[in-house]
């Protein structure tokens, strides 16, 4: 980011689009690691399906980002040749898969945000952003219903499953705050698209998470708790380095290799 008070329009849009694309990309990469290792066949297929939807969505956002950037690159260059500090994904999605409770809680927090975010962006006056959002929300509606159901089943399940999802919620809670961060990029781009900024999604998100937690007999951590931020500015946890090392290995070792 250049050291100027105002970013130009393309720079701002590029930052906004990579935020959308990078979170989908990194979460997809994380879920792909579980392929063949799901706790049940149905869950294994669900994880792979969700990962596939997310990689497709990441591709749409990053394709558009590459066009806006106008440097002759494409979505593959953005995915495979940027380094940690250039990624704009949420810290939440780079957190380890952990136990299935951790994987599921991470997904539930993200899916809920994703649903409300896409719902808002579907109304964007930027036609391209609107059409990507309208396409994606059909898929994400299935994602968010599944994770909500599973949180209830595990939370209101055995003593063991309850304890595990509660611990996962407590552990991941501090990474949920930045999903509603409205910095200069967010405020300006949301205004340009004629939609409410991400800060406006916080209340519907809290309401839905609260409703599901109540049904799941889980205790929701305090909305006023301290929140870890930095992902949107490229300040990541150490986890992202490991993820990129694996995801980018082939293109780094064999530049321009094609399938």
């Amino acid at each position: 980011m250049r050291n100027r008070v105002e970013m130009d329009m393309d720079e701002r849009k590029f930052a906004f689009l990579t935020r959308m694309g990078d979170s989908a990309l990194i979460l997809s990469q994380q879920l792909c690691k579980l392929c063949g290792k799901g706790p049940a066949l149905e869950e294994d297929m669900a994880l792979a399906n969700v990962a596939l939807d997310l990689i497709g969505q990441a591709r749409l956002w990053l394709q558009h980002a590459a066009e806006v950037q106008g440097a002759g690159g494409d979505e593959d260059r953005l995915a495979f040749l940027r380094d940690v500090h250039q990624f704009r994904n949420f810290l939440l999605v780079e957190q380890p898969n952990g136990s299935y409770a951790d994987t599921l809680m991470r997904q539930f927090f993200f899916d809920t945000w994703h649903y409300f975010r896409l719902q808002a962006l579907s109304q964007s006056t930027d036609a391209r952003i609107a059409e990507i959002a309208q396409k994606s929300i059909k898929e994400v509606t299935y994602h968010v219903r599944r994770t909500g159901d599973l949180i209830v089943r595990l939370g209101d399940g055995t003593e063991e499953s309850h304890a595990r999802v509660q611990a996962a919620a407590n552990e991941l809670w501090m990474y949920t705050g930045e999903m509603f961060e409205a910095d200069q990029v967010e405020l300006a781009e949301a205004a340009a698209c004629g939609v409410a900024p991400a800060s406006g999604l916080r209340q519907p998100w809290l309401d839905h998470v609260g409703q599901v937690f109540a049904e799941a007999t889980l205790t929701m951590p305090s909305p006023d708790a301290w929140m870890q931020k930095g992902g949107l500015q490229g300040r990541h946890t150490e986890q992202l380095g490991y993820i990129l090392a694996e995801m980018q290995f082939l293109q780094r070792a064999y530049p321009a290799a094609q399938w």
Binding site: Y115, K138, T141, H208
Partner: peptide, 10 residues
């Protein structure tokens, strides 16, 4: 079509 108006399946 898939009903995208609601977030709860149940």
């Amino acid at each position: 079509v898939v009903d995208i108006s609601g977030i709860l399946r149940r």
